[in-house]
Amino acid sequence: MTMRDIGRAIETNGWRQGSLLCEEDGQALAAELGCEDVATAVAVVVSQSCDLTQADIAAEPYAEVIVGHWSHTRSGDLLYGKHPRRLHLPVQGHEGEETISLLPWQRLRCPRERLAEWEPDPERYLLRADLQVLTTWLAQRYVRGALPNTFNDLLTRKRKTWEKLRKRLSGHVSGLFVELSPSGELGEGDHYSVNLLALVPVAQKETLEEAQETVRRLGDLMRELGMDVQASARCEDEVSYAVVRRMTRFPLEYLSLRGDPMHPMPEEFESRPPSNPPGSDP
């Protein structure tokens, strides 16, 4: 098989970004990655479709694959890419909707020649919206913004109350975004002006009112710390990309401060039952 034939075979076999490997192939890659629980492993191709089918093997010798594990639980705090170090992702299949748990660093390079010999899982797939969550979550690993230390230090004074409100909000929103002025550290006598925005998925529009109340209380908390605040919660389809683009995604997994341990998730979230039962909309 020539190099050009390999790219053509990959396309003919049906490989696309977001394709799941068949169980046996995914477990083989998990073993190569050194995963302990190979029996529950599932692998998803994250390379762009045009890179997968590139005719020149020398230009694109590998397909990037992320390896996760089937999960019996689903946490709202791990959906939509809200947590930078763990993701719960819905997968569609003939038995309904299932969940995989992913860590961003469990990725490997798979020689593209192997995809020319394999076919993707014919029974399981990602919805377009969930594929976008996955790719955005991986990209945020490198492009997410950092908040100024003086801003974080101010929130430390109300940390317990902030954490209580944050946990209440996290299950309802796909993201919490903040815009600060000034955007850096505070000088003597300065104070922050804050635009705080929570986005609610259209599929969970019924939770908008509750999210609005929680964001309002977060805004009140910031005002107690001497900040000027505008705080709101809106459905995703009501906010332009331009607005979100100029803001910084606020960490919803926990308040990220200097010296905090890089734990993957507070223990109380690990045993939380699924927010959506199999077969329901994500």
Rank of each mutant, 00 (worst) to 15 (best):
A139P: 01
V194T: 14
H172E: 11
T150A: 14
L154R: 14
T135H: 05
E113L: 14
W105S: 08
K160N: 04
E179C: 04
F177A: 09
L131P: 00
R112M: 03
R124S: 14
R144L: 04
F177E: 04
L134V: 06
E179M: 08
P120V: 01
V173A: 00
L186D: 03
R141Q: 15
S193Y: 09
L147F: 04
L138Q: 13
A116L: 04
G171Y: 06
Y192N: 12
E188Y: 13
E113C: 08
R109F: 05
K160R: 15
R109M: 11
V173F: 01
G145I: 01
S181W: 11
P120M: 03
V133S: 01
S193H: 15
Y125G: 05
N152A: 14
T161G: 00
L131M: 08
S183T: 13
E163S: 04
W137R: 12
V194M: 11
Q106I: 08
C110F: 01
Y142R: 13
L131E: 07
G189I: 14
K158V: 03
A139E: 11
E185I: 08
F177W: 12
S193R: 15
L154F: 02
L196T: 07
L126D: 02
R157N: 07
L165V: 00
N149Q: 13
G187M: 13
E113D: 09
V133Y: 00
E188D: 15
Y125Q: 10
D190C: 11
A116R: 10
G145P: 12
K164I: 02
R168W: 00
T135R: 15
A129C: 04
L147H: 07
D121C: 10
Y192E: 13
R159K: 13
A116V: 06
S181Y: 09
G145Q: 09
P182V: 12
K164G: 01
R109H: 05
E117C: 09
L115E: 06
Q132L: 10
T136K: 11
A139K: 12
E119R: 15
C110Q: 12
E185H: 11
E119M: 11
R159D: 03
Y192C: 09
Y192R: 15
R144W: 00
W162L: 06
R159H: 03
T136R: 13
H191I: 03
E163P: 01
G187K: 15
S170V: 13
K158D: 02
T161I: 03
V194N: 10
G184F: 02
S183E: 15
V133R: 12
D190H: 09
P111I: 08
F151Q: 05
D130H: 10
L186R: 15
N152I: 05
L127M: 02
C110L: 15
V194C: 10
F177T: 14
K164W: 00
R141E: 08
F177P: 02
Q132E: 06
L169V: 05
R114N: 11
